[in-house]
Design a protein around this nucleic acid. Structure first.
Lengths: 345, 345
DNA sequence: CCCTGCTCTTGAAACGTTTTAGCATCGCCA
DNA sequence: TGGCGATGCTAAAACGTTTCAAGAGCAGGG
């Protein structure tokens, strides 16, 4: 209540209740002990408005009951969804989650790892677009306290939740081919990132398996953002109007692309079919609704949280674990196929 | 490096360098002292891979150099923008920011305040949609360590950054009237929240000042989300096609509304002009681009961070401070007026 | 009446830092 | 040469908890 004077400590409570600080600690932390003392202590706590100092507790217990999630871009709804899943999982186990967004700023990932080494947090879940050798080494150094979401080198000794995004991309493109589309563009995200590479591979693989030529002019790279998708459309169409489908490396890109397509009066899906990736909420209410490949962000978040918390509680095996989840194609309006739709005007 | 054995402590470093822990502390925390010892200590630190334990430091220093931002919904881009502004401000001053989203869950705000009282964080910036009497009292109790973004009762003794959103709403509606629109609907957010009330007041005030009747059937409340905006359109139009403008309580709502309007084939701005609030990035690239009222989220964030950090550093006056920023109307395509546009078809 | 085995409670030692008071050491000036 | 500030260092006391060994009561059994 009164903010002027310092907060009461366990010593004040002990004095007031006429017991030792050990007893107060017991009352605060356990259910045991006789009702009488307990009552007295609780009264003292209430009267003094005592709140245990978590910093001191953490020092003694050597744990903060706090974990952090590091994502590349908190503006991307898919990470928000993942964060929510992790948050819930953490909370159930008595941990707090704090959220950090690196926003492509150099050093931010290291900054987050500093937090871990400084013992500010017990553990870290990190999604990195570009896991450099140096970063992976550092992660391996703290592997008892970290879980990576997203691809890291096969031999890396860290708990890791990944998704077969190559397979997902391939499925998306295959779906477009199945729908009768023949000239399929690809709008990718930031080049030289792992997700960009895996998705490109999936795109290529689908075309090759169908005996189609991969035309590099049909691939445009930019960034994983709505603006990226918006800007990619014009170069993609430059002098090429036989394009009848576009696969986007994620939904946010796809929504940006969709905007530009509508501005240009290009019908989706009549003229061009569109498929994204991630399955964000927005895609369910866009016009047209967006076909996509769910990469199970919530589930990956949940799994990562489980792996991490298991490790923190010491119930994990010594070696590192890798979980791979399988993406799921979700067909909505933006890729209705020729068969159902009829030949485009 | 080696995660098996425990991290080195300052004692290990002291031993290795053959000095006392006090000296190590000095080397770590200041530039002073002779080069020779410093060198020796730094070598020991490097060899042992020593990282100071921040928890112990916090306990001794009685501060964590960490602040938290509590927002109602991290999925709303306006809060992401605010978070980024605060993050930057905090970082410049050596503070870390951790982000919490209450997501309308009961008790989440109290949960955040617990963090403060437990000394997990030094300070808190909180955006509350519904500052109950109880919450405000609690905030007042820790007013040396907290700053509120958004309206709280005039007499509340807390640092407070607010925006004249009533004025902003009024300006938006006035702008629609100036453009020749006469029947203006209002899609509001979650009822019984402060922002919903202030915006409704602004809407009413604009109509009244122009001698127009306020028709309650033109006001639909839902929630501050895209889905809320989407769902509000049908009831708003129910048997009423003279509607020629809609004001939305925020941009996210407006984007949802825009989607539904397009689905229904209602031209924006030809048939219906649309104005939102918040000035989120998405509004700049939507089709049509979205007219809005900027509530200066970044600036409010920056100001709140300044107020809070000033207080934490003890350089703030005893009494609480209130800053009010003035919103700014931003006209884009979605509200092009009749004059420029001509009579709708 | 003493011993045994409980349950509660206490005092003190951590946890890993920062910080303060005081002690050497040193060069310098008178 | 003796005294005197600087300067650098150390020892020890915090910071506010948890935890552990040991003591204090107490009841019950022999």
């Amino acid at each position: 209540m009164n903010d002027k004077q310092k907060r009461a400590t366990i010593i004040d409570v002990a004095k007031r209740a006429g017991v030792s600080i050990g007893t107060v600690s017991r009352v605060v932390n356990t259910q045991a002990g006789p009702v009488a003392t307990r009552q007295r202590v609780l009264e003292a706590i209430a009267e003094l408005d005592y709140v245990p100092n978590h910093v001191a507790r953490s020092l003694k217990r050597r744990s903060t009951e706090q974990i952090a999630l590091v994502v590349p871009d908190i503006a991307n709804p898919v990470y928000v969804a993942m964060a929510k899943a992790i948050q819930q999982e953490a909370k159930e186990r008595g941990y707090r989650l704090s959220l950090m967004s690196t926003d492509d700023a150099p050093g931010e990932e290291d900054f987050a790892l500093d937090s871990l080494e400084q013992r500010r947090v017990d553990g870290l879940i990190i999604c990195s677009l570009k896991p450099t050798k140096k970063l992976v080494e550092r992660l391996e150094g703290v592997r008892q306290r970290v879980c990576v979401v997203g691809r890291v080198p096969e031999e890396a000794q860290v708990d890791n939740v990944r998704v077969d995004s190559t397979g997902g991309a391939q499925a998306a493109v295959q779906h477009l081919l199945d729908g009768g589309r023949r000239t399929i563009g690809f709008i990718n995200g930031a080049p030289e990132t792992v997700p960009a590479e895996t998705r490109l591979t999936g795109y290529r693989r689908a075309l090759e398996e169908n005996g189609l030529q991969v035309d590099d002019k049909l691939v445009v790279s930019g960034e994983f953002s709505m603006a990226g998708g918006y800007r990619a459309i014009d170069p993609l169409f430059a002098g090429r109007n036989e394009l009848d489908a576009i696969f986007c490396a994620n939904d946010v890109i796809a929504l940006g692309a969709l905007r530009r397509l509508r501005e240009l009066g290009i019908g989706v899906p009549e003229q061009v079919a569109l498929v994204g990736m991630d399955d964000i909420e927005l895609g369910k209410i866009s016009t047209p609704t967006l076909s996509t490949v769910s990469l199970l962000a919530e589930e990956r978040g949940r799994l990562a949280a489980e792996l991490l918390l298991e490790r923190l509680l010491g119930s994990a095996p010594d070696e590192s674990r890798k979980i791979t989840v399988t993406p799921r194609l979700i067909v909505r309006e933006s890729s209705t196929d020729y068969i159902r739709h009829g030949v485009p005007a």
